[in-house]
Structure formats: C-alpha cells, structure tokens
Design a protein around this nucleic acid. Structure first.
Lengths: 210, 210, 210, 210
DNA sequence: AATGAATGAGGTTTCATTCAT
DNA sequence: AATGAATGAAACCTCATTCAT
C-alpha cells in the first residue's frame, strides 16, 4: 500500500512522527520495528530513513516533539504576576491537561525513555530544567515568607514536587475520566498545604485569595 | 574459561542473579545479552538457562529478589505504635537506605521495568500495594484529626507521596553522598508540613513530640 | 557471496523452493539448516524468511508444491470414460512417471513427512483422499461385476493398493532404469487380477483346502 | 526422582529401552531429548550414556530390539509344510499381531526410521530381507502352478505385497479395534487372488479389451 | 521522489555430551 | 554405581540498514 500521493516533506514527516509515536508507545522502543513504523505511516522504509534518519534519531525526534509540545503548553499557562501557589497550580493543570489529552504521546515515551540509554541522559536533562523552574518558584515564594531554607533543601523539595506530579500524571493515564484541574488542586493540597493540615480539615483552593 | 569449581546450585544461582542485576542495570534489559550475563557470572550460558530460565524469567527473578529485599527492609522498619507521621518517616528512611545501599539493584531495575512490557504490569502491581499501604496510613492519621477527605482524595494523596519518594530515590542515586535519614526528613517537610508552612519557616523533625 | 542480481520475487521464490527441496531431501528435515538452504539458493538467510517464512512453513511449502505437481499430473492422466482397471493403470503410470522424473522431489519428502509431526497429520490427510479415490473406483468396478464386498472391505483393499503403489514408487527410486508404464502393468497384475476376482464374488479363506 | 534401587544391568537396560521407544515414538527422533528419555526411565542421563551410548546408538538399539521382536514372531509363525498361500497368511497374521500389540514399536521402526538417515539404510536392509522371503515364497508357489514369471517380476510382486502389508499395518495402527487375523485374510483376498491367477499364467495388459 | 530487494550481524535458545564428586 | 554440575556448538529467527532501480 504505497502512499497515495506525493506529499510535501513537512506533511510526510508529521505523518511519520505520528506513526512512530504510536508504535513506540504501544510496543516499546526495542519491540517497535522500523518496518511497522513505516507501514503505519503508509510509507516505505527507505523514506523513513531519508527523512528522519536512524531508529535512535527517530525516537529522539519523537521525544523532542512531544517534549516541546508539553513544555510550550505549560509555559503558555504561566501568569507571571500571580502568587507562587497559584502559578504552581496553573503549571500543574496545564501539565495534566497535556497528559490527559495525548496519552500516547507523553507519558509512555517518558516512561520508556527514562530507563533507556542513551535517552535517559537527555530526559534527565529536561527533568533538571523542570526542577530548576520549580526551585526558582519556591525560592520566590520563600522570599515573601521569611523562610530560610538552603538552596539544597529547596532543590530537594522541588524534586519531590516534580516526582509527585509525574506520579499523578501516571495516575491520570490509568483513570481516563479524571479532571486535570481537580487533580491539580488535589496535588496542591498535599504539596502546598501538607498532609498534616489537609488531613486536619484545612484545604487549599485555586480561587482562594491565598 | 570454564567455571573455577563445581559449586552447589544455590551458590551458583546467587552468583548469576548478582551478575544479572549488574548487567541489566548497566546495559538495560534489551542491550544486555545473555552471553555477557553468563560471562559475568563466570559460567556458561546453558547454566543460566538451566537454573534461571529464559531472559524474561531471569529479569523477573532479578526484579523479585530486589523487590523482596526492599519490601522486607521497609516492613522491618515499621513501628506500629507510633504516630502516623513518624511511621511514614520510618518507612521513608528505610526505603532511602536500601536505595542508597544497592544503587544498582533497585533503582535502575525499577526504572527499566516501569516502561517495559511485560514487566510494567507486575511493577504496577507492586506499586499499587505501596500506594495502598500509604493510603491506609493516611486514613488512620485522618481519623485522629477529624478530617473528612474522601477515599479517592486519600488515594490521590498517596500517589503523590509515592511519586515524591521515587523521585527522591532517583535524586539519591545521583547524589551518592546524600544521607537517607536527612532526605527522609526533608521529604516529610514537604509532604507532611506542606510547602507553604515549610517556606514560612516552620519545620518538621523526627524527634519532635509531633 | 551476495546474490548475483536483483531478481523479481517470483523468480527468487522458485529458486528458494528448488534449493529447499533438494536440501531437505538430502539431509532430512532436521539436519537441514536454513543456512544451507539459503546458500544453495544463492541468497542470504533473511531473504528466505522474508519470502517463505519459518523453516516449518518452508517445508510445508515444499510439500505443497510437490504434492500439487503430483496430484495434477495424476489428475491429468485420468480418462473418465474408460473401464475401472484401465483408469487405475492410467493413474498408476502417471504416478510412477512423476516419481521417476523428480526423484528428489516427492518420494523423499513424503517419506520424511510421514514420520514427522506436525507434517504427518497433513500428509495423512492427503493419503486419505487418495485412498478414498481408489475406494470409489473399486466400488464402481464392483457394481459392474455383481460382487458384494462391504464398504470397510473396499477401504481395506484400497489401503492395500495404495501401500503397494508407494512401495513400488520406492522401488523405482532405487532402480533408475525402470519403466513407469511397465511397472504400472506389473502392479496391475498383482492388484487387479486379485481385485477383479474378489469383486466378482470369489474369495479366499484361510481354512479353505487351498 | 532417582531410581529406587540398584538394579542389575540387564533390567536397567530394558527399562531404558522401553522408555526410549516410548519417547521416540511420541516425539520423533529429533524432538526426543536424552533428558526426557532418562527421566522417563527414572535414571540420570549419564546412566543412559553409560549403558546404551550415544543418542544415535540408543535409537539403533531400539530399532534392533523391535525389529528382532517382529522378525522372530513372524518366523515363529511359519509352518514349512503348508501351501504357499497359507504360509503367507500365517506370516501376515503374525505381522499384524505384533503391530497391533506393540503399536509404539512399529511407529518407531517404520514411520520414523524410514525417512531418517542414517537409519533408513539399515531399515532398507531389513525390508530387503522381507522382500526376499516373499519372493522365494512366490517362486515356490509358481513352481507348483506352471507360471512363467521372470525373477524381476516376482521381485516386483513381492515389493507390492510388502508395501500393501505395511500400509495395512499403518491402517491397523489407526484402527485399534481391528482384528489381525481378519485383516490378514482381507489382504490375502486382494493379494493372493491376484498372485494366484498371475502365477498360474493369466496376465493383465493395458491394451486388452478386457 | 520512492521502493522492492537484499544482507550483516547478533541474540536467544536448546541439545547432546562429559567431568568430578 | 550413580549423578549433579557444566559446556561447546549450532540452530532459528529478527532487525536495522542500504543499494539499485
């Protein structure tokens, strides 16, 4: 079943990436074969190699595209002049939105890549950037509260928050009906308020004056 | 290069598992070859197949052994008659201890397995058990505080906490000097107290009367 | 030693089947290696797998091709409006012709397959069809002779005839100079002269005075 | 499960051969593993090697034992002073008796070995001896009937008869209820009625108006 | 621009077979 | 006398990758 029409390169590339993401998600990096990807894209294998290169390069390309999509969405949700907690909530909601929307895209590739050299390194990098952003956010919040946590402590906190976020992203993947905004709020209740207060009855809400 | 001596089965099996964990960790499941594992164990390939079975079964065996080691250590650290926060801290410290001690053993296998069918399913199971334990813990804590979170909310909280723990385990893997007890405390500060209070200067400490 | 030229699939497939039949005949199913078959066809192993599939499938393909060749030749020799004995002779001669012509093709594969799961079952099927055809032929002959053999007796007779045919096919394989037509006649002299009398009502009995 | 007692060599050997025949007939020569055979005999593998040698030698041993059993039974059924037809019937009945009694033995001998180098050669030998016996029998019968078949013609007849016998043996294998004596009679009805006339001088010819 | 044809390389798995106890 | 421990060798199969058309 050859491609029906000669299409401009950009379109073809998009088709291939779409197929690649789908196949990689379903089968996993190693079990996915270039054959299957090419077929899924309705193209012959040499085309894939001509346009996107090696299997490794192709996977990297998938990773990049999905990562960019995620990062940009989150970045677009930022409102710089808002309190730190609200900023965090905004970012979380955007993050959960993306995850819920393109389940195949992000989560699965992410899960794959984290355990798979030579992609793990790259992923770790991206994760570091996220942690850094959160760290800065926490730093700003602290500046307005008179706290005195060390830089390392802030970093550890940020790691914990990012991990919690990832974990809930996974949870959403398994609960298709879950609402991103609500999940973001629930996470804020743990992360921001703390289990102690939360369990005691206090609760955090995005619309609260703070 | 024949094995140096005839050893009883139990010994050889342990050697093989050790080597397998090491090789799987370094190379990743797919890139690891049975050849390399056998050689690392100082044994010929057929021995590996005779004692531990297929590559898949071998990996599963590694997973099981490391998971058991982890679970038992954590379970052994539990002190049932202690307040919930302290219990959580105990568990966390034990968890971080194991991770820091056998870096190759757990973290890497865990990272691998989570993105790799047919292991992901089994791992997900184990993770579910962990989440359940934490959920129960939270429920008990709430019972003593008069809160009114729903079951689902508790579960989401538990997911967040587990994710944060995993994330910090990763962080420890990259920071060999880190102290498990201290890391556990830091995580409690986020998870139990909440970022808000923490940043404001309050802090949680394992020895505090509560 | 790469293939000399790029050839269309149909051609290559034929070459491969030819080689496979030859190698399977010489070495036997298990002793034959895909490597040797590929080399004999002047092709690399992956081509064999790409075009003809698994070793089992390849053997089945060989069996099918040779069986078809045989069946069609025999079927082509049938003249429906001729007396039963003549029809039988026609079929036999055609059968011996094929066997004598492609010695490697049929007999050897047939011998192999009869003792080899999972091919035996299929072969048994084909043999059953042959027996059935002969049974019908005998039934028609009896109808014109007033005999009264039971259905089972006819079937046993047919089995005996088919076995005799196979045996003589083997004999021909070992006597390259033998003439198919003459052999067919000789077999008729045993088989038909007996069948004829039997179908006509005469019968032999162990206790008879002779 | 080691053998329960130290047994004399002869007994052990018999056990092993029994198991070997059973396993070979169930699995086929190649699919049968020495492991399985040893286990089936309740003995360790080195014992099998010590007593019966290589796999090839073991199979040959099976072949020999079963062949001997068959030959001796048939030979024991001969009554030299009886007419040729009755002698043939006696032999056939004994033959079918053995086959019906030890189905597994027959399977190993014929279905397997006939298509399998290096055993086929040996089997062919045994078969030759059978053919020779039948040929002689036919010759004697002819001498008493005034026929004039050539030596080759007799041999061809013998081949046909042996083939028919084998085929009916197979048929019996698939019809466990069948009666050896009756089957022998049925085969005589085809084979002998024909041979009888043929040896008496009548002959069939394709061009005969019939 | 696009593809059918082709392969090198490597991995898992299974056996028959033998030591050393 | 008997066996658990051990291995060399080889088979099947699959894949990423590239020519030649």
């Amino acid at each position: 079943m050859p491609a029906f029409k000669r299409l401009p390169r950009a379109v073809r590339e998009r088709q291939m990436l779409d197929s690649a993401v789908r196949v990689f998600s379903r089968r996993g990096y190693h079990a996915a074969s270039m054959d299957e990807i090419a077929e899924a894209a309705g193209v012959s294998k040499p085309m894939v190699y001509a346009y996107l290169g090696t299997k490794e390069e192709l996977f990297t390309a998938c990773l990049h595209r999905e990562a960019t999509r995620l990062m940009e969405t989150v970045a677009g949700a930022v409102e710089p002049d808002v309190p730190a907690d609200r900023q965090l909530w905004n970012g979380l909601r955007a993050f959960f939105d993306v995850v819920a929307t393109s389940r195949e895209g992000w989560t699965v590739l992410y899960r794959q890549a984290r355990g798979l050299e030579p992609f793990a390194a790259e992923l770790a990098d991206m994760r570091s950037r996220m942690v850094r952003v959160v760290t800065v956010l926490l730093g700003r919040a602290m500046a307005g509260s008179g706290g005195r946590a060390t830089e390392t402590e802030l970093e550890v906190m940020a790691h914990a928050l990012v991990g919690a976020g990832e974990s809930l992203a996974d949870w959403m993947t398994d609960h298709p009906g879950a609402d991103p905004a609500k999940t973001a709020t629930q996470m804020m209740n743990v992360a921001w308020l703390g289990a102690d207060r939360l369990l005691g009855g206090t609760s955090w809400h995005p619309e609260a004056g703070r």
